[in-house]
Design a binder for these strands. Structure first.
Length: 105
DNA sequence: CGTGTGACGCGGG
DNA sequence: CCCCGCGCCACAC
């Protein structure tokens, strides 16, 4: 049985617009638990496909993809590129430009 | 029930 | 920039 918290996280992620990204901490904060960024990550890892979530739009606070090469990194990079998100030479995303403010949707 | 681990975050050296 | 440590939460052993 999914908890309300989990459900909220799902809903929030669903709201992230294409071309924008959000951080784990940001989502946890919006869901009501600023310290549950880990839970957010875990939830994504497990139920990303079950809810048709744009999991690729969730990255860490450094603007980096938290997945390791060969474990989804490429796919996430691909999907984001298709949405217009750009990466710098170090594979980092400029949050100033692409981070979802939580209002636009 | 203690311990380790992880798609995390933040502060410090 | 890198490496470490600590805090937090859920889960597998």
């Amino acid at each position: 049985m999914t908890t309300d918290f989990s459900q909220r996280i799902i809903e929030i992620i669903k709201q992230i617009p294409s071309g924008k990204v959000a951080t784990y901490g940001q989502i946890a904060f919006m869901a009501g638990n600023p310290m549950a960024s880990r839970q957010v990550a875990r939830l994504l890892h497990t139920a990303s496909g079950k809810h048709n979530l744009p999991w690729q739009r969730v990255i860490n606070s450094q603007g980096l993809i938290s997945l390791k090469p060969g474990a989804g990194f490429e796919q996430q990079h691909e999907l984001l590129c298709e949405e217009g998100v750009e990466f710098d030479l170090r594979g980092r995303i400029d949050l100033k430009l692409y981070q979802w403010n939580g209002r636009t949707r």
